[in-house]
Nucleic acid binder design. Structure first.
Lengths: 112, 112, 112, 112
DNA sequence: GTGGTCTAGACCACA
DNA sequence: GTGGTCTAGACCACA
């Protein structure tokens, strides 16, 4: 089980979303598998339920999970997410290459 | 001269540091060349002098500029900066490759 | 028989009322025809009997069904329901047209 | 100035997003015009700053506004929003027509 | 002054 | 039990 890193400059809710995005994209959590309950995860991470709720709301908005009132949150079956993530990583890669090229460092020099 | 992009989510002081880091690394500003005065740049960017000051303090801390009391700020002659920056870009690149590999996307798939 | 869509954001009891409202208005269920028993439907939908009970109470309140103590629930003979539903749909339609017109989109532009 | 309707079953934060979505789409608020500050709007609506913050976060996510740290929130220049909204209204319209047709009510009967 | 994050705790709807 | 909304209040970064 992963724990939060208080040294990490990212806000707690973002560390939680990042953690579950990876678990879901990696296939470690399968479609329709239940997410930990908001209150339980808050206790496990020694954080506030509102913070977990905020993370879950964000994951739902992004299509990673869905929520059923009174029952809990569940992993969504969303095959597009992987492709979206690939594109996002590709864009970040290109931004780095551009930054490098602006100061005269070539792709090759960076990759080697 | 570049202007600030208010729609950019980065804080203003960071947009300023980023801008001057690039200008210096690129060689567009030479060692010992004077930086614009804090007040003048603040006016040009229609921002708060405190914000420009914060950016300059950060650039000084990173070794990009030096300040002379009563005279202003100047570009520092620092040949290591380019290598430092290359390393930083390389690290960010590797972080992306790791993130990709964690969800089963290879370097090759990302680069093509 | 329709099943519940757990990814549907509507609460389960509402999905049940919606389903039976349609079946009754459509004539797929006739007056005095018995509704499935609360327990049986709960099992079929793998949901909680309390949830089905809540749906039935709502359908009764709206005049779609009537309940006979000890015997179960039955479709009510209620010729006004169709007209009520027509009016409700009409109202929702007008609300959409108003929302559109507020931002300068005409009925015609929306309908085409 | 609009006030909240406590009778309204929608949550407060949603009433706020709905209100500003309309104002922006209608053109009553222009690109780069400042939104009321979180604290000020909270006072005006006699609600909690967190609730306004939640509304603004949602508006930002949907592309209606952008936020500048330390300066405030501003209306975004986003010409796609109107088309998105038109599509959303169209979809809701079609859903009503489908519901009607399922119980034997024609488009014409509903529109007249 | 501005927004953003977080905690503690209440209350509600739903299953 | 579950999630969702809201309040009150603190603290931080930024301009």
């Amino acid at each position: 089980m992963n724990y939060l890193d208080l040294q990490d400059p990212r806000p707690i809710y973002e560390q939680i979303t990042d953690m579950y995005r990876m678990l879901i994209l990696k296939g470690a959590m399968k479609p329709d598998e239940p997410m930990p309950s908001v209150r339980k995860l808050a206790m496990e991470l020694s954080t506030n339920p509102n913070t977990v709720q905020k993370a879950y709301t964000e994951l739902e908005r992004e299509g990673y999970i869905y929520s059923v009132k009174g029952r809990g949150n569940f992993v969504r079956d969303n095959p597009d997410l992987r492709e979206k993530k690939r594109k996002e990583l590709k864009d970040r890669l290109d931004a780095i290459f551009k930054e490098a090229s602006d100061i005269g460092i070539s792709r090759e020099e960076l990759l080697k």
